[in-house]
Structures are given as C-alpha cells and as structure tokens.
C-alpha cells in the first residue's frame, strides 16, 4: 500500500481524505445547529440568559407546541401501525407477489410526495370543491363540511401527513419483515404456538428496534414539516414550525432570540425522541451483540 499508516505524514494523509466532508458538515450542519442552540440562551448583546426560553411559555406558543406534539405523535403512531400492517399484508399476507414491487415503488414515491403538492392534492380531493366532497354531496346527499370534518383542521392535517408517514414506514419496515425467518415461525408452530403467540413472543420483539427507530424518525419527520401545513391551512392552524417560519419571515414576532428559542425547542423534542429511541434500542437489542 502506498500509504503505510506507520509514517506520521501518511497518517495525516489518511485523515485528509475526510476533511472535505467534515468541513461541509461543520459549516452547513453543526455550526448552524450550534448557532441556534447557543442563540437560545443568549441576549442580543451576547450574555447568557434563560429569558428566551421563558419567552416560550406564552399561551400561543405552548398551544402550538402541544398541537405539534399531538400531530407528530399521532401521525407517527398511526403511520407505524398502519405501515406495519400494510407491509405485513403485502409481504406475508398471501397476496400476489407482484403487489409487493408495486407497493414498494409507490411508497418510494409517496414518501417523497410531501410538501406543497400533497396539500394541493388533498384540497382537490377533500376541499370545499374536492372530488370526494362533491361525490358525497351529489350522489349521497352528505355534506362533508356539515359533518364537522374540515380539511383545514387538525384531523385534516393528520390525514394528509399519513400520506407520507405510512409509505415511509412501509419502506423501512419491509426489509425488517424480510429479516423474520420463515423457520422461526415454523419452529414456534411446531412448539404449539398460534400465529398471535408467535407475533407476541418472537416477531414483534425482533422487530422492536426497527419499530422504535421508525417511530422516532416519523415523529421528527412530522414535527419539522412546514410546507404541507402551510399550503393546506395557510397559517390558520398554528403548529410550532409555522410559528418559527413566521418569526423568520418577520411577520409576527419581532424578537429574533425568541426565534432561537422556538428553533431550540424543535431540536429539543426531536432530539428527545431520538434519545429515547437510542436508549430503548440498546435495551431491546441486548440479544444482538
């Protein structure tokens, strides 16, 4: 090898190979994040303070935070459960084999079909003049708006979020389902276990780390999403990222350091979700290495 690691110069060269990446990560990932974190605890003139964090404790921000948490937890949980069921139905539900490929490709598309176009699609379908709204009205005489359903509301937004949450779960959990070996199931059966017992005692515990990881990912995915909510509801449904968006735009809040605090809160909660995941995973994976 031309680069023998025992020469100091060569060792330096080895590290040189990752410098561009580390520099990029520093400039466009680490420093911006640190800026937000430190900014949340500083006054405009640079001295330390908790005033910004205290500034979060206003009813409107707390309400937005609660709404964001509720939305993210709900769509992450539903996304996990429904995505798992869909993946299970396609991979081991006895359906024709080609459905699997179609579902996987579609999931790849739908999990990336987030943001503005997704909102448009839901408006065109369930909005005031949307296809389903019109069909229900003209054919069945049901006024969707009168039933209390409103697309520009929490359930409407959750319904739209599931459109990318479920496929993301399908994409991630399908390889994990493939990792469940057929002979585990057969071994369990030969030992007298029913299908349900097999799932409870073997399959779900084996899948648990993947499920936890995907839940954390889906949570962060929903918690940070802005475009779908903005295009769907304008700013009428105020969730935390919309508040931050407005703050950055300078529309609502005037204090930039409150913006830091809101941004910090967002990292804080997605960070917590991942910390919980890492801890639980370490416990769930004691049977692997």
């Amino acid at each position: 090898m031309p680069l023998a690691p025992d020469r100091p110069a060569a060792r330096l060269l080895v590290w040189l190979g990752v410098v561009p990446f580390l520099l990029f990560a520093l400039l466009f990932l680490i420093l911006p994040t640190l800026q937000v974190v430190t900014g949340a605890f500083r006054t405009p003139d640079g001295s330390a303070t908790l005033q910004n964090i205290k500034g979060l404790l206003t009813p409107s921000i707390l309400r937005a935070l609660a709404l964001s948490l509720k939305l993210s937890l709900l769509t992450a949980a539903l996304g996990c459960v429904l995505g798992l069921l869909l993946a299970a139905a396609v991979t081991r539900g006895g359906l024709p084999g080609w459905l699997r490929g179609v579902t996987m490709t579609f999931s790849g598309v739908a999990s990336n079909f987030a943001g503005v176009p997704l909102a448009f699609a839901f408006i065109a379908t369930l909005g005031r003049l949307g296809l389903i709204t019109v069909i229900l009205r003209d054919w069945f005489g049901i006024n969707l708006m009168a039933t209390g359903f409103n697309l520009i509301s929490f359930p409407g937004l959750a319904l739209a979020y599931l459109y990318f949450q479920i496929p993301l779960m399908v994409l991630i959990i399908t390889p994990a389902l493939d990792g469940l070996r057929k002979d585990w199931r057969e071994a369990a059966e030969s030992l007298g276990a029913t299908g349900a017992q097999y799932w409870r005692m073997v399959a779900l515990p084996v899948l648990w780390p993947s499920l936890l990881g995907t839940f954390a990912l889906l949570f962060a995915n929903a918690f940070g999403a802005v475009a779908t909510a903005m295009a769907l509801t304008g700013s009428s449904l105020s969730i935390l990222p919309i508040i931050l968006f407005a703050q950055i735009r300078g529309d609502v809040l005037q204090d930039p350091h409150l913006g830091y605090a809101v941004a910090f809160a967002m990292i804080f909660f997605t960070g917590i979700a991942n910390l919980i995941y890492v801890t639980l995973r370490a416990r769930a994976e004691r049977w692997q290495k």
Partner: peptide, 21 residues
C-alpha cells in the same frame, strides 16, 4: 451520525441557523 443528523434536525431549524450564520 453526521449523515443522519438532517433527519433529526428539522430543515426549518437548519435554514434558520444559516440565516443567522
């Protein structure tokens, strides 16, 4: 870890950092 960070830190927070930085 670094490559997974963008999945944890919301884009809006990252861009906020850019604007300040």
């Amino acid at each position: 870890f670094l490559t997974l960070m963008p999945l944890v830190i919301p884009p809006i927070v990252i861009v906020f950092g850019y604007i300040r930085l």
